[in-house]
Nucleic acid binder design. Structure first.
Lengths: 137, 137
DNA sequence: GTATATGCAAAAGCTTTGCGGGTTC
DNA sequence: GAACCCGCAAAGCTTTTGCATATAC
């Protein structure tokens, strides 16, 4: 059984057809699709209403099986959490590149503790532009 | 003249009454108000329509005089950019605490360059909970 | 004086929700 | 069999926009 479906069972999320179909789309996704894009991809397999897509996505996010993002405050986007990572938005193309956690974690944890808080989660969101080969040193 | 009004002149943004009033609210704000909250505060001084509030805020953000945020994908929030800083959302209270840039900049710049990009901007958004005095070592 | 901003109200997204019938465990 | 989920369609929210008028430079 696919990894995310197992998670659903463990956490008591019912494995309905819409749920399975959405999970399939998410597992195959190489990007960070929004609800409407997920709806579009789901239609290729089975007709499921947009309202249900939203309900399924919210259920999965509430169970911690998916993660919600909102880059630059645009519409919600979803992905399966793998290792902790962050996002770079390319201003020229709008493409979203993943950045590994690397050493951010330690630095942020220290800073947060200094302020008297305990770190629960964090996101780094970078805006950048690709350096073309000609510009490279 | 207030600091932000000077910036408007320099960047060719017309100093209309709605614009001045919004800038006043932002300069006095100790928090990160959303458009509707700004509208509410503006009403205490002068009747200005919500549509105009949005247009003014977008104009100011486009000119780089204000910064837009959308914490956890909720509605847009605005603030005057001072020094570069980031945000910690307290899960218990919803309060937003500012975090100084500190050493984030250097680390992120290096990481982004390694991926072949030039850093334009970045945000760090932390979720955390306050450590109560009793829990402190 | 001219280009641009505002007010008003309507519209345009995105997301949620109420209800009756269907599905999962 | 009980609880929960789905489809549909309507409503809710935030944000944008068209048009006639008013305002800043």
């Amino acid at each position: 059984m696919p990894r995310l479906e197992t998670l659903c069972q463990e956490r008591g999320v019912k494995l309905t057809k819409p749920c399975r179909t959405v999970l399939g789309v998410i597992e195959r996704a190489r990007d960070h699709p929004c609800a409407q894009e997920i709806h579009r991809r789901v239609q290729e397999e089975r007709p499921i209403s947009l309202g249900t897509i939203y309900r399924v996505l919210n259920r999965l996010a509430a169970a911690g099986i998916l993660t919600r993002h909102a880059f630059n405050g645009s519409r919600m986007r979803f992905e399966a959490p793998s290792h902790r990572h962050h996002h770079l938005v390319d201003v020229r193309t709008g493409q979203i590149v993943e950045i590994d956690d690397g050493e951010f974690m330690l630095l942020i944890e220290q800073t947060v503790e200094r302020l008297g808080y305990r770190l629960i989660d964090f996101k780094v969101e970078v805006t950048a532009e690709r350096v073309t080969p000609a510009e490279r040193p």
